[in-house]
Design a protein around this nucleic acid. Sequence first.
DNA 1: TCTTTACTTGTACGGATGTACAAGTACGAT
DNA 2: ATCGTACTTGTACATCCGTACAAGTAAAGA
Lengths: 183, 183
Amino acid sequence: MTARRPQRARDPEARRAALAVAAMEVIAENGVGRTTHRAVAARAGLPLGATTYYFPTLDDLIAAGLRHALDGLQADLSAWDDRLRAAPDMAEALTGLVQEYLADRRQVRIEYELFVAAARDTALRPLAEAWLNDIPATLVATVGADAARDICALLDGCILQSLVSGTELDAPRLTAAIRRLGS
Amino acid sequence: MTARRPQRARDPEARRAALAVAAMEVIAENGVGRTTHRAVAARAGLPLGATTYYFPTLDDLIAAGLRHALDGLQADLSAWDDRLRAAPDMAEALTGLVQEYLADRRQVRIEYELFVAAARDTALRPLAEAWLNDIPATLVATVGADAARDICALLDGCILQSLVSGTELDAPRLTAAIRRLGS
DNA sequence: TCTTTACTTGTACGGATGTACAAGTACGAT
DNA sequence: ATCGTACTTGTACATCCGTACAAGTAAAGA
């Protein structure tokens, strides 16, 4: 209408990214189901209209948030792989990485939000599968594809337990369990 | 106001239960975040006002739905334990039970809805922990508390993978992994 | 310089939501 | 029989929702 307020500097790509980040944060705090245009816009410090301009529908906005989170996770995973390759003891190294990962509960919550959302909405399934199937190459090279998959399942289960209970990880126990599965 | 429609037979306890069941179903289909008074009432075939009469707030209604689901899960778990005790091969029996469990995706989705909701809302945490800590006694008796916990984590991870990917469980691989973890 | 296009922003609108509540009704206690 | 209480039900209301859109503005190309 009137638009008295002066326009800010134009930087479409930065806006798109800021909205994706804000969406990710809102999802982590409120869950996919309670993520709204307005909450994301407020979090990004942008007007409501910006959300619909860059993301035609709410599902697109949520998908962008989840995709952004996934990018971060995959970057983490790549760094993990490097550190695993250099580690003297793979099982201990893996346990340590999981402990680090668990330090930021926000990120962990997002991961499981994605899984649950994907279980219900098939459109999100490729996104979730991408993360679930992204197994450290070094792990595969060391223990084989099957054992690597088993170990990842074990880690997912342990992460879930820790996330829900809010308790710390039992590191020695996890290390021992990894050793049993990898051989 | 006018209430022209004739009242139905009174059965408060049945109503409360029907609402909990309906809430559980809506949560499984739409997720905790998209569960509303109206959706639950419609599902239960009851008027909107019934929901707020029996459950003062929406959170109470959702908690009732989750609690109801949890009761069902724990009954299943108890049945599992009986069958485990009678099974000749514990690892194979466990795998079979997981396969049966995965047959009803609706129930599985609810479980993970509960976990994710509990991760965000501490009020739900005791509920989620109750399920997570409910480990078959027979398993504990056979392999010890630590290994039993490891195995449960592995199962949770495998269930998650199957839920997200929509694929079947790799039964022989899971059986072998369980054997490795059970010292 | 003028025009076109891409971006920004405030507002509008039909509909859904959580919750409150008044009006009506069965049923046990007296 | 009547009375009180617990239950039932329809409706009201303020608020929030997704989305649409018109008005305004920068920047690039002619």
